[in-house]
Design a protein around this nucleic acid. Structure first.
Lengths: 72, 72
DNA sequence: CTCTATTTGTACGTATGTATG
DNA sequence: TCATACATACGTACAAATAGA
């Protein structure tokens, strides 16, 4: 049972929140710094998770504003 | 016209090679170090490109061996 | 079978640029 | 103009897996 990487777990965590409606479309996610503090991880973990979620089209990053849940 | 990030260009470059058959399924891609040297980029660029391609299911990484083009 | 080299994967830190408010 | 926040980019280290001598 290979332990999942931190960034995978973070990505799945956010994916669940989006799927469950806890994070509705248009909702702003916590900032990178906030996610680092909340989950006790480094920026790389958050970075990789965001990169994956963006590649999946689940979230959209807006520079200077934040990362938002995609509309569809 | 926003200049595409290096890792996006690298990912698209590899994607084209896969789509065109230049890199057939099962083919081994150059190693991370090789890609860094070939394209004159850092490991982060290669890392992000690989992360994206793996998320898309286009390539499969095998630790200790290399990264291969997915079978389908 | 053991040792070593190679390669991928994960992880941390930091700097610069850009865009928004 | 300044503060905030995301995006890109570079460097490095360690662990695990595999192949080859």
């Amino acid at each position: 049972m290979p332990p999942s990487p931190k960034w995978v777990e973070l990505a799945e965590h956010l994916r669940k929140q989006i799927a469950s409606g806890d994070l509705p479309p248009g909702e702003k996610l916590p900032s990178t710094s906030q996610l680092c503090q909340i989950h006790g991880v480094s920026s790389i973990v958050v970075r990789n998770a965001m990169l994956t979620l963006k590649a999946e089209g689940l979230v959209v990053g807006v520079p200077g504003v934040g990362v938002f849940v995609a509309e569809r």
